[in-house]
Amino acid sequence: MEAARRWLAERGVSQVRDGWVSDERPDVLLTANQVAHSWAGDVFGEDLVAADQVRLAFGLLDLLDDYWVTCEIRFADQGTAGPLPVDVLWDGYRRRLEADRDAEAVTYSLWVDWFEDHTTSATAFAEVLGNDIDRVVADPSEALLRRARRVLECSGPVRWPVKEPTYRTAMRLPALHSALFHGLRASFHDVCGDLEPGAALALLDQLDLPTGTQHRAELRQVLAAGHENRYRSRGAWDAAVRSCS
């Protein structure tokens, strides 16, 4: 983060009490989002090896906590100079998913960019959780649990055959059951959500959830009826809500 702060300072951008200012217009207060849109992409034009560019970009993400920085990382990965170094790229995501701080920009990036794109979702899901789920279940540190919960909850768009083995392994750890429920629910509700109703229902029925968990009964009803996605079965969810109320 400090390297990113110095990098911005070299470009005349500094943080003040209520936001950011630039030397060019010191009387204009900038938001973190404005700073990200104006400068984050420049990281990948720096005379640095690609791995150091990625580390600097993630430092900007830590500093600004703005989703647009993740967009610039993805643009660089898919651009003419890409792909970015796989180990550094995904280590950057994993570290921030494990950190004891807000990770909304990172989880939103996974959800709407990496997971909704079926050319990248399998690799992304494997890198941020699938490859490690056995280790998470066998030795569930707080950091690993944070990462697993965050990924499961935003995994709705990942293709069912890709995520089902990870879901089944995660089922062995009760501490992940609530996150699995959110993942199953998102798999039904997301526009790009994906599930197999019978298999999803079998998982849902094994979850140890608090009595009265909101929408559990409705989700069970639509899955039992064979519905795959809310937007491909118009009215099914509303009917389930009326039936369970």
Rank of each mutant, 00 (worst) to 15 (best):
G235P: 06
A76W: 00
P83T: 05
L219N: 00
I73L: 15
W68L: 06
V86N: 10
N229V: 04
A239R: 12
L30Q: 07
Y93N: 00
C244M: 13
A217H: 08
P157I: 05
A4D: 02
R96T: 01
V21I: 15
W7R: 10
A217M: 09
T120P: 00
L84M: 05
L63N: 12
D47A: 15
V191G: 11
V241L: 14
G130A: 01
L89C: 04
V35A: 06
A239N: 07
M171K: 06
W20K: 06
T70I: 12
L180C: 10
V222C: 04
N229Q: 13
Y167F: 15
R146W: 07
E98W: 03
G41K: 02
R5L: 15
T31Q: 07
Q214V: 10
G12R: 07
L201Y: 09
P85Y: 08
A57P: 02
G198F: 08
P165C: 09
L152S: 00
E116T: 13
R242S: 15
D102L: 07
V106A: 02
T169Y: 08
D66M: 07
L8D: 00
A36M: 04
L195G: 03
D42T: 12
W7V: 05
E24C: 04
Q214R: 15
D87V: 10
R135V: 12
W7N: 12
A200M: 03
R135N: 11
A3W: 07
L63V: 12
L173S: 11
Q78H: 11
A51W: 08
G41W: 03
A148W: 00
D42C: 09
W114R: 03
D139P: 01
G226R: 14
G41T: 07
E142C: 05
L129E: 01
L110W: 00
L63Y: 11
H189C: 11
S121T: 09
V241N: 05
N131D: 13
R11F: 14
D205S: 11
D100G: 04
L60W: 03
R95Q: 14
V86S: 13
Y231C: 05
R216K: 15
S38I: 04
A236D: 06
R185W: 11
A3G: 15
C192P: 03
W160M: 08
D65I: 03
T107H: 01
G198C: 09
V106N: 01
L173W: 06
Q53Y: 07
A99E: 07
